[in-house]
């Protein structure tokens, strides 16, 4: 399977790092080599957050994704900052509830999903990030739905397993959007 370098970006508190964990766990469950590298700093909620995830069949060399095959962005500053870095032929998934405007790039596939609004409508508040992962799954098929479920079960803390069903609904919503 082809290497997948993913960059996830948005505000702290949007679940950017959790999104990365889901993708990394999916890779782990499928027996692939993975790396997950967060940005870290004094910011907590409200600051910028981004996360690099690499999936590969070889040990991952550089865990820092500078030319993502897939970019998921959940705010305007991240869109402005990273849209130009997507590798030609790559994919950008944009939460259009939070990002105005579109990219002029034609060498990448761009998907505008109003994830935050959708989450609100469907009673999945706080799961806009998972909707976007669902969209990524639909566009790339980087893992099976079973793997995704297993990844969610792993990434969600044991005492919060009641949240798994909502997460799966968000994935499916994203896949259909």
């Amino acid at each position: 399977m082809k290497d997948l370098n993913v960059l996830l970006a948005g505000f702290g508190g949007q679940g950017i790092l959790f999104m990365g964990k889901l993708i990394a766990y999916a890779g782990l469950i499928d027996g692939r080599e993975v790396s997950w590298l967060p940005s870290y700093g004094p910011e907590m909620r409200g600051g910028t957050a981004n996360c690099s995830v690499c999936l590969s069949d070889e040990p991952v060399c550089s865990p820092l994704v500078t030319e993502p095959d897939i970019l998921i962005v959940m705010n305007q500053p991240s869109f402005d900052r990273f849209i130009g870095s997507v590798a030609p032929g790559g994919i950008a998934i944009i939460d259009s509830s939070l990002v105005g405007g579109k990219t002029a790039r034609e060498d990448i596939s761009s998907f505008y999903v109003p994830a935050t609004a959708l989450a609100g409508e469907k009673g999945l508040q706080g799961l806009a990030n998972i909707i976007l992962v669902g969209k990524m799954l639909a566009e790339t098929r980087f893992c099976s739905l079973d793997t995704m479920r297993a990844a969610i079960e792993k990434a969600v803390p044991p005492r919060k397993q009641n949240l798994v069903a909502g997460n799966m609904r968000a994935v499916e919503l994203g896949m259909d959007s």
Binding site: E33, V34, S35, W36, L37, P38, Y40, V60, P63
Partner: peptide, 10 residues
């Protein structure tokens, strides 16, 4: 270094 400390790998 901070990269190795902060990153997750299997």
């Amino acid at each position: 270094d901070g990269l190795l400390g902060q990153m997750m790998e299997p």
